[in-house]
């Protein structure tokens, strides 16, 4: 590999400043969503975006997250994740994963299921850092891949 294939320091700084300026311009123009879209975790998975007009497939893979709007104690935040998905031998929810990207420990557990569970449902308590947070839940269907949903909450006192 020759030297020319690498960025020089000067070129890198120039590119970085252009990129930085670009995202600033986009956000100023009210296109913050466009600048944000490239890094948002929702885009890598299938998600139900419009809950008012659901298709049959979306209705099946709708993830219900029950969380308090304001959690008093971050050391013990109750969360319930449930899905109305069928649990048949060839079509079921394989796993549910709970994530919060703002916390020191991002992964809040992976819960694996089989058709013998009858329903993809988990109720647990998690530790969270204080402040505004967004909980992401990824559910894996054996036929239709990974689906994601999120819910926002506020934690009064951090419990990490």
């Amino acid at each position: 590999m020759s030297q020319e294939e690498y960025f020089t320091r000067r070129e890198f700084l120039k590119a970085a400043s252009v990129l930085g300026l670009g995202s600033t311009v986009l956000s100023v123009l009210g296109l913050a969503d466009l600048a944000f879209a490239s890094t948002h975790p929702l885009q890598y998975f299938k998600a139900v975006r419009d809950t008012k007009s659901l298709t049959a497939l979306e209705k099946e893979h709708l993830i219900n997250i029950r969380l308090p709007a304001i959690a008093e104690d971050g050391a013990n935040v109750p969360i319930v994740v449930s899905m109305g998905h069928p649990m048949e031998r060839d079509h079921y929810i394989k796993s549910i994963q709970i994530l919060n990207f703002r916390d020191p420990v991002v992964n809040k557990g992976i819960y694996y299921f089989t058709p013998a569970n009858g329903e993809a449902y988990i109720s647990t308590q998690i530790r969270m850092d204080g402040g505004d947070a967004e909980i992401f839940v990824i559910a894996e269907c054996s036929k239709h891949g990974k689906w994601i949903a999120s819910k926002k909450l506020k934690v009064s006192l951090g419990g990490c």
Binding site: M87, K108, Y111, A116, G118, Y121, T124
Partner: peptide, 29 residues
């Protein structure tokens, strides 16, 4: 485990609270 079959596995870590109360579903067949 339900009978001899393992029906669920939960992989947790230190982000779970102290003394957790877990709830899940089982089809009682």
């Amino acid at each position: 485990f339900y009978g001899a079959e393992r029906i669920s596995l939960f992989e947790l870590n230190s982000s779970t609270s102290d003394d957790p109360l877990l709830a899940f579903k089982v089809r009682a067949d």
